[in-house]
Design a binder for these strands. Structure first.
Lengths: 137, 137
DNA sequence: ATCATTTATATGCATAAGTCACATAAAGGC
DNA sequence: GCCTTTATGTGACTTATGCATATAAATGAT
């Protein structure tokens, strides 16, 4: 259990219990990337580790997710042997994938709203020091 | 797999694959509730099913989470035999619990920001119809 | 007094999700 | 040939979640 001394520390480094954090970003993120244009796994992996949009950059998880998407018909793949290095499996989003992305966005909008309500409640509690607002017990 | 015809439908009803949605709200929600005042599981369960802050209202999950929190020292419990009906196990948040809540809030703020970036990107894509912005492939 | 109902807490099991370590293999440089 | 980089994957394990069900105290009805 982390010390808790540094209240603003990056929790992923020392607090395994925060593994139980809000997750499930990778899937819609993939679909969003692919709806901008086709890409192969390794490329997505690089974008992942660069940006901070998504926490999870595990290759195994990414590749498995892509394969799963293909099984579900959200993406289609083909081999690209053109450039140098080993062949790349290039993924393209399908219409169904775009529909999923849309549905996911709808869901994520709700999630964000929940998040905002939660954070507002939390801040009201800490600002009002003691939490006099709507206390029922 | 859901039809995908009704693009704004409530996905939880018909799309099991959306079980893979953003989760992990219950834990901080519990801590927030308890930091407003002590409560027992059943009470929290009722608040859960009333509000729309958190999706998961499974009793088993809730009770297990509370027990887990107690093991970790985030909450403390005592039996309340006062009122009518069976005894209630009343939970109170500890200082450690409050620290966790704070750390969780920090994390959730980052999550909300990610979510906002994601949604902004998605909306830019659908508004700009075709996604000409920063396309690399 | 017994039986159904409500309140309340919990366990068991199956599956889903995520992590970690490692395996495979093509190309290019040396 | 051998090492490194690029690239795709598999296997095993742990944790998280969902769903069904068990238990039990009090209360009200008969």
């Amino acid at each position: 259990m982390c010390s808790g001394q540094d209240r603003d520390h990056e929790d992923r480094e020392c607090c395994p219990q925060f593994a139980g954090r809000v997750r499930g970003f990778l899937q819609p993120w993939i679909l969003l990337q692919l709806s901008r244009g086709s890409a192969h796994g390794y490329e997505l992996l690089e974008r992942l580790s660069e940006g901070e949009d998504v926490a999870n950059a595990d290759p195994g998880f990414l590749y498995r997710t892509l394969r799963g998407f293909e099984e579900e018909g959200l993406v289609r793949s083909s081999w690209d042997t053109a450039g140098s290095g080993p062949a790349r499996r290039v993924y393209a989003i399908t219409d169904l994938g775009r529909e999923y992305l849309h549905a996911w966005a709808v869901h994520l909008r709700r999630t964000r709203d929940r998040l905002n309500r939660f954070l507002a409640d939390y801040e009201a509690l800490t600002t009002g020091e003691g939490g006099e607002r709507d206390v029922r017990a």
